[in-house]
Computed example of a mutant assay.
Amino acid sequence: MPTRRVHHLAAATAAATTALTTVLTAVGAAPAHAAGELHVVQPGGSIQQALDAARPGDTVQLLPGEYRGSVRITTPGLTLRGAGPDSVILPADSATALDTSAAPATAPATKAATSAADAAAACSAAGHGLCVVGTDDRPLDGVTVEALAVSGFRKNGINATGTTGLTVRATYVHDNGQQGISQEKSTRGVITANESARNGQSGVFLANTVDSEGGALSTDGTLVTGNLLTDNRIGVTVRRLRDLSIERNRIHGNCGGVFIVGDEGVPRAGALTVHRNQVVANNRYCPPNPRLDHIQGAGIVLTGAEETAVTENEVRDNVGASPFSGGIVLVHSVVGVPNARNTVADNLVLGNGPADLADRDTGTDNAFTRNQCAVSEPAGRC
């Protein structure tokens, strides 16, 4: 039977070990892979050193405390686990240099691995907190990040690109300058049971890529479920993607709740499910930018999307005077592309303003059925 070796980068006290066991039991974190090694890091130790030493199937375990500086993962099948929100990754302070040069214990054997390591170093240097990085040719497979906090970075808290099967679970990602949890060019992700709050852009942001145009990519079933998303610009943003689900999230106190964003690219954004979310009082004011008008009081917004099902959501008390304001809103994209063949059905949509259901688009083949609402735009949709 394989055995699991444990590496302690700093001595763990009995009290810390007891607290760790208690927190992991509370969040339901899975045990390390039976054949993998456990690398334990205590405050004052180096997360990056442990990650660089880890192999596929290993777990890097953070004890409660603060850890300074960005870190990056480029090893498949790795788990990075904290002891809950008391294990917090923060920006490097003046006495802690940002580590972008640490090399893996074993040099990358392939051009793809070298490319991933270079991309990860660039991600850290850019000001993100935790970077999970693969390549287009070789997506990083099977990484899990759970039960830790990431806070105060000038860009994204958790930034993933080129991944497949990434799980982000039970994290607290807050007060970062751009996205809380961001995933680009990735498939089969699971983002669940996280709290993402007070980030400058989205609590959860999913996209094909942020730095170029292009048709929507399939995520092959990415799932965003059971998260608490509050006091961000947008709770969840999906941009130019297909085949994913946003389910059973609590989304409140943002400028906007859920934005499904498409454009003229082919294939179009869509083939999505927005199901059984609670989207309430997203009434913060966010000023306009060169691409969008201001956002306030926006519940669930579809813009330039197709074949998306918005079903059984509770959407209440989202009120504002933006083009996006209202409960469930359809509006054409910034380049004028209408929504097409979307279904809005069986939702509870009340107390939103200026309307509970608002179809401000030119598309004519979107269906509104069996929704409980008071005011629609145009009339007759309730």
Rank of each mutant, 00 (worst) to 15 (best):
T3G: 15
R5A: 12
V6D: 01
A10C: 10
A12D: 04
A14I: 07
A16Y: 01
A19Y: 00
L20R: 13
V23Q: 13
A29P: 03
P31F: 13
A35L: 11
H39G: 11
L51E: 03
A53G: 11
T59R: 14
G69W: 01
V71W: 04
P76C: 07
P76E: 06
A83G: 12
P85D: 01
P85S: 13
I89S: 00
I89P: 00
L90R: 08
P91L: 00
A92N: 14
A97Y: 08
T100C: 14
A102V: 05
T106C: 08
A112D: 15
T114R: 14
T114P: 03
A120K: 06
A120M: 03
A125G: 13
A125M: 06
A126V: 00
G127V: 00
V132E: 07
V150T: 00
N156I: 00
A160C: 11
T163S: 09
L166G: 02
T167H: 05
Y172T: 14
K185I: 05
K185L: 14
T187K: 14
A193G: 09
A193M: 07
S196R: 02
G200M: 07
V204N: 03
L206N: 01
A207E: 03
T209M: 09
V210S: 11
D220Y: 03
D220P: 02
G221C: 04
N227E: 00
T230P: 11
V236M: 06
V236C: 04
V236I: 15
T237Q: 12
R240V: 09
S245A: 14
R250W: 08
R250A: 15
C255K: 04
F259D: 04
V261Q: 13
V261C: 04
P267R: 05
A269C: 15
A269W: 00
T273K: 15
T273H: 09
R276P: 04
Q278E: 10
V279G: 08
N282D: 06
R284N: 08
P287N: 11
I295H: 03
I295S: 02
Q296C: 04
A309T: 13
V310Y: 07
T311P: 05
E312K: 08
E314T: 13
E314A: 13
E314P: 01
D317Y: 11
D317K: 06
S322L: 05
V335L: 07
V337C: 01
N342S: 12
D346R: 15
L348N: 02
G351C: 03
G353T: 12
A355H: 05
L357G: 09
A367P: 01
T369H: 11
N371Y: 09
A379K: 09
A379Q: 10
